[in-house]
Design a protein around this nucleic acid. Structure first.
Lengths: 364, 364
DNA sequence: GCTATTGACGGTAACGCTAATGTGACCCGG
DNA sequence: CCGGGTCACATTAGCGTTACCGTCAATAGC
């Protein structure tokens, strides 16, 4: 069995140099496939380095090269599978390009976000990929001041002049809302998280645009915001709670005598609680009430009835963002760019098969 | 607006030293709260460093200190919320201890696992926290050979002498199986992933123990293994597919005339597909068939009926593992230790309220 | 046959930081 | 009044690599 935690001195370039009787310099050039070394010498050096178990000291290399070949990714949480997918794709792309990924979680807290940014800078990363907590640019100003490439994903910061990659929340929510309106709903309720982020703002904007499209006046009562639970200044958009809160919000509506024809949601997890609330009210989906979720979670197609939802191009967004970031990291230029990708509506049993199946909302 | 990607030279200790008219060394000691600096001088130095925006160069510091204060975490994927929670907790603990977390994904592929380990070593991390892909120790031998602290989480490698932290899969599955047996089931089917990992092995062991507890002979037909989908040698335990595969496996059983009294599952996602299969067969939960899942996913309590399942102490496991790793990283000794935590059965509507409600399995 | 040119290699200086060792001023006791 | 100790700082030596220049021989060109 190999001994753990041995404290033998690591073999360095100097050791290899001594072993082959050449200079440190030549050995370095040989191992890095730099010109200026005879081919046979190069092979001999490589063989010897392998033999005595030489592993380059990344710290020294980073110091002289000024790069650690590492990307920091700052994400609010991993419980939202959308973020998990973003991180997953980003890791894969970074690895393929010979970079590693430093993961920092901000937990929807501006405090922690600031600390994450500080940690990223301290760690000497080559670039930062971030899903910001809010519209406040303060934390990320530090990144820009440090001269580090920065790319934002999924959430925009309005007055920050940075690259931004996301899916189209405006068009997406406009599409879902229009879908239920086209099918005869006139009283639609949007359930959303109460977070101060562009994602929510844009989805609300899309929702209002759809109402406009159909000449329906917007009322504040068309939107139900689910307050974010916080603990010690850390937001907790914990998925079970989202379902629970959606259940409560919907039940409140019904108890106040409201009876919407359709719900469009900012999150598939809201549908879990909403479905229960509807069952409790004896309302049937989609004949009494239409429901469209957001995010196409794995469970959504297995609900009863299967949940219509919006599939988000998470991998594509992350891939584009990382590609752009790596381009900037390796000295690439160009004005900050914004790339917004259209999401896709997935129609399932929670929508009536054909339009205009619901009229007036109440079944006779 | 701040210019992005500027190439101004970073301010170094020397700049601070010149600004305050002191030596580099004194500035270093002042900023690191080392003795040998007058208190007023220290404050003056700190203020000046802050003013001119000094950020220590981690590369240089790492070189001289021989550490980057970074932990590598190698995980198979982030789609399984259990792993997402492990990573989340690990990141939090590492951050609290002044470390950063390098995330590497192995995608259930031994190839990628080996590359992840290599990347971790190249990156000069101080320790490795890993969920291994298989029972093969080869990849992690390299970690031990490099003298790096290694802690395994959630999956064990039998012949690797390393610390290991997990939840008790044997006891957990024994408990769930005993629960349905206690309530009168005699024909129980376990649905599991077909992965060569200790997790699955142990859950199967627990399942068999429960059968023994009840004097029921074990038959190969008591276990339905769901083959892992692979693409280009990368396993894809993608959650929607797990549900789909469970649906298929269950339907196959029914079509071959099998009619189990209970299903115990290795994963809540299997329940999604199973529920659909049961509905298609006109079978009711829990009166006709009992179901217990595994992992307490957010959606599980919102299924119809709510899914009984096993809640896993993911955060606790990760916290213990990271604590142990950080202990070893800072030179701590001790024999490799194994800590196994009991999971908790959560009883919901997919189990009959009182034992012995089902007899013989068929309702009259 | 003598000078340019090329190729293979060595010497040395960074990179920015910390740690070990020096140095001078000051204080204190005898 | 002087020796020894203490404090506040400076000087210097690395850490292991890569980059920039030399050097020296072999070869090519006229």
């Amino acid at each position: 069995m190999v001994e753990v935690g041995s404290n033998q001195r690591r073999t360095t370039l100097k050791d290899v140099a001594r072993a082959v009787g050449l200079s440190v310099n030549t050995v370095s050039r040989a191992l890095n496939d730099m010109p200026g070394v005879g081919e046979d010498t190069r092979q001999r050096i490589k063989a010897e380095a392998e033999r005595i178990g030489y592993v380059p000291n990344i710290h020294a290399r980073s110091l002289v090269l000024g790069s650690r070949r590492t990307i920091a990714m700052i994400v609010t949480n991993l419980f939202n599978p959308f973020f998990a997918e973003l991180v997953s794709e980003a890791e894969s792309r970074a690895t393929d390009a010979g970079y590693t990924l430093l993961l920092l979680l901000s937990d929807e807290s501006e405090d922690r976000e600031e600390r994450a940014v500080a940690a990223a800078l301290r760690s000497g990363v080559d670039g930062v990929l971030a899903v910001p907590v809010s519209n406040d640019s303060r934390a990320f100003d530090a990144v820009i001041r440090a001269g580090l490439p920065l790319v934002l994903v999924s959430r925009e910061i309005t007055d920050l002049h940075a690259d931004y990659y996301a899916n189209d929340n405006v068009a997406g929510m406009r599409m879902t809302t229009n879908t239920v309106l086209d099918r005869g709903a006139t009283d639609v309720v949007l359930i959303e998280e109460d977070l101060q982020i562009s994602t929510v703002r844009n989805r609300i904007a899309g929702f209002r645009l759809a109402l406009e499209d159909h000449g329906i006046p917007f009322d504040r009562r068309n939107i139900a915001l689910i307050p974010t639970r916080r603990s010690a200044s850390v937001a907790l958009p914990w998925l079970p709670w989202q379902a629970e809160d959606a259940h409560r919000v919907a039940t409140d509506l019904f108890e106040r005598g409201r009876r919407p024809h359709a719900f469009v949601l900012g999150n598939d997890h809201f549908a879990l609680g909403l479905y229960v609330a509807l069952r409790e009210q004896g309302l049937r989906v989609p004949t009494d009430v239409m429901v469209i979720g957001w995010g196409d979670q794995p469970f959504s197609r297995y609900l009863d009835p299967p949940l219509s939802t919006v599939a988000l191009p998470a991998r594509q967004v992350a891939a584009n963002a990382m590609k752009r970031l790596l381009h900037k990291v390796s000295g690439g230029q160009g004005h900050p760019e914004t790339v917004i990708i259209e999401p896709e509506l997935i129609v399932r049993g929670s929508l009536p098969r054909s339009p205009a199946l619901i009229r007036g909302g109440t079944t006779p």
